[in-house]
Design a binder for these strands. Structure first.
Length: 438
DNA sequence: TCTGGGGTCCTAGGACCC
DNA sequence: TCTGGGGTCCTAGGACCC
């Protein structure tokens, strides 16, 4: 495995680039994409970064700036981003049989077995193909380990003269670049670790790479030791070709306005539980408990603060919407406290397992077989007619869901909804038309 | 007025067991 | 003065990631 070469490819300012694919007028303009409820900026085009808009900055702080500078502002359109991401994955698999999808916009590809010139050319071809077929600009980092491939990708992004590709496979390239990069740019080194490293004079990536592995372990646990080895070219992190089964699952949301009544909170939590059950069924997982929480906003300085949470146990593991909704509402009833302006609620499960491998209850168990049929029908309806087309009455139809998450500036779901397809307009001269007619 | 959501991994410390 | 040794499991909290 000494000649292993990994490529890390990712979309530049991915969400913003997705918005630009179907709207040519956004080219060259500052673009930002907001989090749920249009709360914070979570993606920024280079032009928006130049205006000083920070990652995670609350939108209300930059609203005036956005108006003044004609920043194009979008709510998150996860359907669109997920679909474009899947299309990029299809291309990656034509380049390499070994692909790890690391996040919505990042993938590791194994490009071992090619010479330096060939793999650099492959990286350039890959970028060009993604750009042409999907419309997303990308950067590629090459290296013998994941940490070095990530670092190479970072260098490719920050140095336009590299034209989107950086190769840190060779010792010479590493000797050139590592001393020039701040230690906190290393994948896995966050704020806390960077502060510890800088306190002992480890300031650049090169400093970290030459650190004694045992010392790195003493300072940053085994995680730090692995990073040192990876920076030296010794792989500690494997390519994960088959995504591991998830260990936990959560659906949590801030309300678009404060919630003060039990009915509304109960309905919101039921909606979250409905979504949670759908996610579990899609992966064949089950849970034997539902943890419910809700709390006021830490930014709400006027009102009194309160935070509540409770775990409701089930008689046996399930992923049935009816069971999870009932448990979640029971949890809300148990810990509800009147007199607060609640800002957020969620349902959380941990210790998930494939449902068919879970222990059945001897007494008081659930009718799993009957529920499976009902849920399959429910999922089929919602898949065909759109999420929420059929919901259990137990999930509550009491209010107008005015607490529901806001997406007031969402672009069309161009690639996944027939009624939201982009419309292409073709122009031709009269003469061309006439000649076509003849 | 207005501040996101969803994950993973690691460690320390306590409870408990033989 | 002085009170074993070696395990497992669970949980909370910290850190990090996108």
């Amino acid at each position: 495995m000494t000649d292993r070469v990994l490529a890390l490819i990712d979309g530049n300012n991915f969400y913003c680039s997705c918005e630009r694919v179907f709207d040519a007028s956004l080219a060259g303009r500052p673009v930002i994409v907001l989090s749920n409820n249009d709360g914070c900026a979570v993606a920024r085009s280079n032009e928006a970064k130049s205006l000083g808009i920070r990652m995670g900055q609350p939108f209300f702080q930059i609203q005036d700036l956005c108006r003044r500078e004609r920043v194009a502002v979008f709510s998150s359109n996860y359907t669109l981003y997920g679909d474009l991401s899947a299309r990029m994955g299809v291309i990656y698999r034509q380049w390499s049989p070994e692909v790890e999808t690391y996040s919505i916009d990042e993938s590791f590809l194994d490009l071992s077995g090619f010479g330096a010139r060939d793999r650099a050319q492959m990286a350039r071809d890959l970028r060009a193909t993604v750009r042409q077929w999907v419309g997303i600009p990308t950067c590629v980092g090459l290296g013998p380990t994941k940490v070095l491939a990530k670092l190479a990708n970072h260098i490719a992004k920050k140095n336009p003269e590299l034209e989107g590709v950086c190769d840190l496979t060779g010792a010479a390239a590493r000797a050139e670049w590592l001393p020039r990069i701040a230690v906190e740019e290393t994948w896995g080194i966050g704020r806390a670790s960077a502060a510890k490293l800088r306190a002992i004079g480890v300031n650049t990536v090169a400093d970290l790479a030459t650190m004694e592995p045992r010392a790195a372990r003493g300072l940053l646990t085994v995680v730090g030791e692995r990073i040192v080895h990876e920076l030296r070219g010794t792989a500690c992190l494997a390519l994960e070709l088959v995504p591991a089964s998830r260990k936990g699952c959560a659906v949590t949301r801030c309300f678009s306005r404060k919630v003060e009544s039990l009915d509304e909170l109960s309905e919101a939590v039921a909606a979250h539980a409905t979504r949670l059950a759908e996610k579990l069924r899609r992966e064949g997982l089950g849970t034997d408990h539902v943890h419910v929480f809700f709390h006021t906003s830490e930014f709400d300085h006027a009102g009194p603060q309160h935070s509540a949470g409770v775990t409701v146990r089930l008689p046996e593991a399930s992923n049935c919407t009816l069971v999870l909704v009932a448990a979640a509402k029971e949890g809300v009833r148990r810990v509800w406290r009147e007199g607060y302006r609640y800002a957020k609620a969620g349902v959380v499960t941990v210790d998930l397992a494939p449902l068919e491998r879970t222990q059945r209850a001897l007494i008081g168990g659930l009718d799993r077989e009957r529920s499976a049929g009902l849920m399959a029908a429910l999922d089929a309806c919602n898949s065909r007619f759109g999420r929420g087309a059929v919901v259990p009455a137990a999930a509550g139809l009491l209010t107008k869901r005015s607490w529901a998450t806001k997406f007031e500036m969402r672009s069309p779901r161009y690639t996944t909804r027939v009624d939201e397809l982009p419309i292409a307009k073709a122009f031709a001269t009269v003469r061309t038309c006439l000649s076509e007619c003849r």
